[in-house]
């Protein structure tokens, strides 16, 4: 009886307030979509880190013709210099940080370059001797890049030491910036959602003031009086959260999956199923927002 009665009250409340309920749904939908977008960007960053950090290396580029770095004053790298560098890599002081390394010749570098820029006309104008040979080092702990850099930068025959991770970090910082923007927008929209839910609950409480007055008089419990209002807000917000989750799933399915993944086959994009991990979080967030704001509103506008 209680359950059917409360459900009936909720249904009549939602029916009386359709336009407000729709606006609550839309506002929570938009705000939670932004929250979810920030979440997706973070998932994507984590995914790319996992994918790239295993593959990304520290590269020690060796001097070629025309190198102007201080270590290259004696011209292109010699066989002895190269052997000395290999010895240094094998020495205990350095080896403890190194997982493995290999030497990349100019020809190999050229092959990689051709692969990477296969679609670009630049390939035709590059020859192997324009590309430097290098040591490619895979570190046990990528954070220890500084030690390698300090040890090798000043060695003769070394043009420069590059942490490829830093190139990725730049990309990640762009993505982090984007997710920060999404979070800020989401924050503003969430404030809108909270205020709108509060207004909706107020209107709903006002339009049913006769009922609640009688409920109070005949001794209905606080829960019995307030629960229909709280659930009204919660249901609207939950619908908004479901719509937001569906939108995010759509983005990862059709935009990331069908469009971006084809354009950038090398990049590991997050899958639609990974995006769905966000759905319960968004729904929980929506319910929490609506629940808290309606309880606070009722405390002020619905005397029990």
């Amino acid at each position: 009886m209680r359950v059917t009665f409360i459900l009936g009250e909720i249904a009549s409340g939602l029916r009386r307030n359709v336009s407000m309920v729709v606006s609550v749904i839309l506002v929570t939908f938009v705000s939670l979509t932004f929250v979810g977008a920030a979440g997706m960007l973070q998932l994507q960053i984590t995914q790319m880190k996992g994918y790239w950090y295993d593959r990304v290396q520290v590269a020690i580029f060796l001097c070629g013709e025309g190198s102007t770095a201080p270590g290259c004053v004696s011209g292109p790298v010699t066989g002895e210099q190269q052997a000395a560098l290999a010895d240094l890599l094998e020495s205990p002081a350095v080896a403890q940080y190194v997982n493995d390394y290999h030497y990349e010749t100019r020809e190999e570098a050229y092959e990689h370059f051709k692969e990477q820029f296969a679609n670009s006309p630049i390939v035709d104008s590059v020859t192997p001797d324009q590309l430097p040979s290098s040591f490619r080092i895979n570190l046990k702990d990528p954070e220890k890049y500084q030690i390698i850099s300090e040890t090798f930068s000043s060695q003769p025959g070394v043009e420069t030491v590059v942490d490829q991770r830093q190139l990725l970090e730049r990309l990640f910082s762009v993505m982090n910036g984007a997710s920060l923007v999404a979070i800020v927008i989401a924050g503003i929209m969430i404030v809108c959602a909270i205020l709108l839910i509060a207004t909706t609950i107020r209107l709903s409480a006002f339009s049913r003031r006769r009922e609640t007055a009688i409920m109070r008089l005949v001794g209905a419990s606080k829960i019995m009086i307030q629960l229909p209002f709280v659930l009204e807000g919660v249901i609207a917000a939950a619908v908004g959260a479901v719509l937001a989750s569906a939108t995010l799933w759509g983005v990862s399915q059709f935009f990331l999956g069908d469009v971006l993944a084809k354009q950038y086959p090398d990049t590991a994009f997050i899958s639609p199923s990974q995006t769905l991990v966000l759905a319960p979080l968004l729904i929980a967030l929506g319910i929490l927002l609506a629940g808290v704001s309606s309880i606070v509103t009722l405390r002020r506008y619905l005397k029990v």
Partner: peptide
């Protein structure tokens, strides 16, 4: 009936 419903009486 409303007065009975809201205090949880049986149908």
């Amino acid at each position: 009936a409303f007065a009975m419903q809201v205090i949880g009486r049986n149908r």
